[in-house]
Design a protein around this nucleic acid. Structure first.
Lengths: 166, 166
DNA sequence: AAGCTGGTTCAGTACTGACTGAAATCACGA
DNA sequence: TCGTGATTTCAGTCAGTACTGAACCAGCTT
């Protein structure tokens, strides 16, 4: 099968996504590229070799990063009968998961700050400072508690970011 | 002035904060320690030397990282008349800013995905995939648009995360 | 002026982690 | 059982960067 090389415009876009992933999320650059590419790839199913060609990375890197993306559920594998090749496609909820991860991460930070409250007990000035910090996270939790359910979400999610089991 | 060494409990907590900053935000470990320490330090004003002693880092590192924290407005400098020493304290809105940064970052990601919509035009299957992704970010923007103002926020903030000018 | 003291700059070190090429392994067909 | 293509593992390279020690600078004090 001849792969038509992806247009420059697409590659630039993929690069933006990859940069975001690398800078903001700590995801390896190549993993970001894969994610970006699979998001706009047609057809959605792409073999590792195809992806490697599209984004210009080695097969070895593909193995590593596809496994990473798979382990966090950002891509799903699928195979066709009579074929040995494994195809990958971006999971429908991948980007939702990115959002949820970020939100959950903030919630975790809120927990930590909460725990710090005890440390400043004894100093009214310190306690006040800590209260200001905690209010922000209380506000955040509140915002999501009263938010409509995320698209693709089943429940209204009383707590910030429940992760579905693998 | 004799500095009483910070209790173990406090140091452990500072370390948790630092770890969060380093892992989730890409902030240098020491900067995270400074931020954590200043959050629970009593008194709130601490000199670079004091901080260095408390978290066990070199003065040089303090210079670098205090400047970093200052440049993003997480700490503020203050001086006392008749003294040369510069004192630092955590900015009241520091943690709010952390939250806002994260949210803004997600909004930016939403923009990027939005821009990708054009790339899949021509393939109904790809367009559908992209729409699913965009819906999540639309939902997120909506949540914050209808949220009560963040504590310490002046306006109701129609857009996600306006940064006050320096 | 000399000597402190607090602050900054700079060059070097150490470390982490992404990425790759090549070897090893696996799964299936003949 | 052998061969072949796809995949994985592994060791090594490389880049980026956090951190530090040491030298340097600027005011104050005597």
């Amino acid at each position: 099968m001849v792969l038509d090389p992806p247009p420059d415009e697409a590659l630039r876009w993929v690069e933006r996504i990859a940069k975001y992933c690398a800078d903001q999320d700590g995801v390896p650059l190549i993993a970001g590229r894969i994610l970006g590419w699979l998001t706009i790839a047609v057809p959605a199913e792409q073999s590792a070799t195809q992806i490697a060609a599209a984004i210009g990375a080695s097969r070895a890197s593909l193995t590593t990063n596809l496994r990473l993306l798979d382990s966090v559920g950002f891509v799903t594998q699928l195979t066709h009968p009579g074929e040995r090749t494994v195809y990958y496609r971006v999971d429908d909820g991948a980007w939702a998961r990115v959002v949820r991860r970020q939100v959950a991460s903030l919630a975790a930070l809120g927990e930590i700050l909460q725990d710090g409250t005890d440390l400043v007990r004894g100093s009214p000035e310190g306690a006040a400072r800590m209260r200001v910090a905690n209010e922000v996270f209380a506000w955040l939790a509140d915002v999501f508690a009263h938010a409509p359910p995320m698209p693709g979400e089943t429940r209204t999610a009383g707590r910030a970011a429940p992760e579905e089991p693998s």
